[in-house]
Computed example of a mutant assay.
Amino acid sequence: MNLRKTDRSELNLFPALSFLVVCFIGGYFLWATKDALPSEADNTDFRYAPSRAKELAQELDSIYSCKSGPGMEKFLETWHRKYTSNASAPGNQDDTLRNVYNLFTTLFNPDPTLRPRGFRSDSAYRYVVIQSQLTFCVAEDGMFDYYYESTPPPTFPTDGFYLLRKAGAYYRVLDDFRPQIRQAGLKQLYLTDEYKDALELFLEKNGYWPDEERTSAESGRKRMRFLQNYWYVINGHWEGWHLGIPAIGYIVLNKSLDKAVAEVVEEYNGSGVLLHKTHSGWKEVGGLYHWEE
């Protein structure tokens, strides 16, 4: 038997070794980042696209064209099931955010029998639209006490948050805000970007428009009245839509996290409320201002 020495040019291991190295690195990356990748159960807005809002608006158009009650109920139930509260999510569990979420839950108190323009109904709403953005501010204790608990209080505009922001207080906007609510009989509809855009596309224009656009504005009002069969939605005084009533305009916390001010927005009016934290939770202790459009 003849044995011969293998020439290196006949056996090149570099491509095979390179392939194995790439597979190893790729596999390690997927393993290391598996917890960071979104799952199907993660019902946030990371998959939002404008095309999705257009699809939802078209679905609403179809429902409205035949005034389909079952179709609208199906639309709302799908919306309700798609998003759940993220108040208990790990990223919302530091002391400041936990208090922001708890303050909203304390102050958010929709009346399901109340209808736009102050009318009452024997049939209660089953759904409530909840804002998905909230601005909050953290102020030094001394600054908070000066603006909100001085006797007599300083004169400041109805937007008390603006004054604190001007004074240099830290503030932040929560963009994926999905709080819990206390009203067990109401199904929450979180106003994420895709649903906000879809509703605005469906409602079209609103306001005091020139003659050539008046027909479009009237169409929007009719569509609004259709939605009012299901939840509290109203047109803006001049333009736009208030897609969820009530709402919280802003929250201001002191640095010790035991005092707060919040603005509660109703239909064309709002009020600044002072709260203190007690052993049983947040309690309203007084009103600061009131505004009306």
Rank of each mutant, 00 (worst) to 15 (best):
C66A: 12
M72L: 13
G69Q: 14
S62K: 15
L76K: 01
R81G: 06
E77A: 05
N86D: 10
K54D: 10
P70V: 08
G69P: 07
C66P: 10
W79R: 06
E59Q: 15
C66E: 15
F75A: 07
L60R: 00
I63P: 02
F75L: 02
S68L: 04
K74I: 10
H80Q: 14
L76C: 09
K82G: 03
S65F: 07
T84H: 03
K54G: 07
N86S: 09
K82W: 10
C66N: 13
L60K: 09
Q58E: 15
Y83L: 07
S65E: 15
S85G: 02
Y64K: 08
E73K: 11
G71V: 04
W79G: 00
C66D: 14
A57P: 05
W79A: 02
L60C: 07
E59S: 12
L76A: 01
F75D: 05
S85M: 11
G69K: 13
E77N: 12
K74M: 09
R81Y: 01
E55W: 01
K67V: 03
K67F: 06
E73N: 11
P70M: 08
H80V: 11
C66Y: 11
S85E: 01
E55N: 08
W79Y: 08
I63S: 08
A57I: 05
T78A: 13
T78R: 13
S65Q: 14
T84N: 08
S65K: 12
E55Q: 14
Y64D: 08
S62V: 12
D61Q: 14
E55C: 03
P70L: 11
W79T: 02
K67T: 00
W79I: 03
A57H: 00
N86F: 02
L76G: 06
Y83D: 00
D61G: 07
K82T: 13
D61V: 02
S65H: 10
A57T: 06
E73Y: 03
S65V: 07
R81K: 12
I63H: 09
G71Y: 00
E73V: 10
L60N: 03
F75I: 09
R81P: 05
S68T: 09
S85L: 03
S68K: 03
W79F: 12
G69N: 10
E77C: 01
T78I: 09
E55H: 09
R81T: 10
R81N: 12
P70R: 06
